[in-house]
Write a protein that binds this DNA or RNA. Sequence first.
DNA 1: CGTTGGATTGGCT
DNA 2: GCCAATCCAACGC
Length: 205
Amino acid sequence: MARLPRAFFARPSLEVAPELIGQVLARRLDDGTRLSARIVEVEAYDELDPASHSFRGRTPRTDVMFGTPGRLYVYFTYGMHWCMNVVTGRAGEGSAVLLRAAEPLEGLEAMTARRGPRPPRELLAGPARWTRAFGIDGRDDGADLVRGAAVWLERGERVPSDRVAVTARIGVTVATERPWRFVDAASRCLSRPLPRVSPSAPRRR
DNA sequence: CGTTGGATTGGCT
DNA sequence: GCCAATCCAACGC
C-alpha cells in the first residue's frame, strides 16, 4: 500500500483537508493487529484562525502542530477524550487537519473490543470515538505518518470532488464564517448528518 | 497560584 | 434536548 508522501502534507490545511477524504488511516497495535479506516470527515485549522489551538502561538501542547508536516498532533480534551490531527503546512506554521470520522475497513473486532458493541457505522463516527477505537492517545503525539510504524496514511480510492461537501465546523463557536469541515456526502459514518437540503416546504421547529 | 472552559460523548428527561 | 463527567492548558493576578 502506497503511503502519502511528505509533500502531500506540506501545503495549507485548507488545501490538504478535502484531499484527505477517501484516504486510509492505518494502525498497527502492540499485539500486531492491523486496523484501517477510510476517512470521511475532517476539519482544517490554521494559526490565523481564532478557533485553532495554534492561534495563540506555539506552546508545549501545540509544539507538534508547528513542526514537521505529516506528523500526528494528538490532544486531550473535556477531561477524558483524545483527538488527532494531521499536521500540515511548512515547519514553523501552526496548521493541521482534525480527523473526525471514518468508515472501518480492517480490524473491526479489535475496534469493537475497545468501544463496546455498536453498529460498525458508529465505531469511528466522531473524533474521540475514532481515537479510542484505534488506541490513539498522548503517546502518539508527534508520530510520523510518513515513516512511522504505528500509524500512517495510505492512498485510497479517489473521491470525486463533487461528492465532498463543505460545512461549518462542529463544536466551534468562533470563526463560524470559515466553513472548513469537509465530508464525503455519500458516507453514512459521519459524526453528524449533513444539514438537510429542504426540497421545498419550510420545516417546523 | 486560582479560575475558566474546552476542536466530546453518552445517558437521561 | 440537556447536562454531567473529569482533566488540564492557557490566562489573569
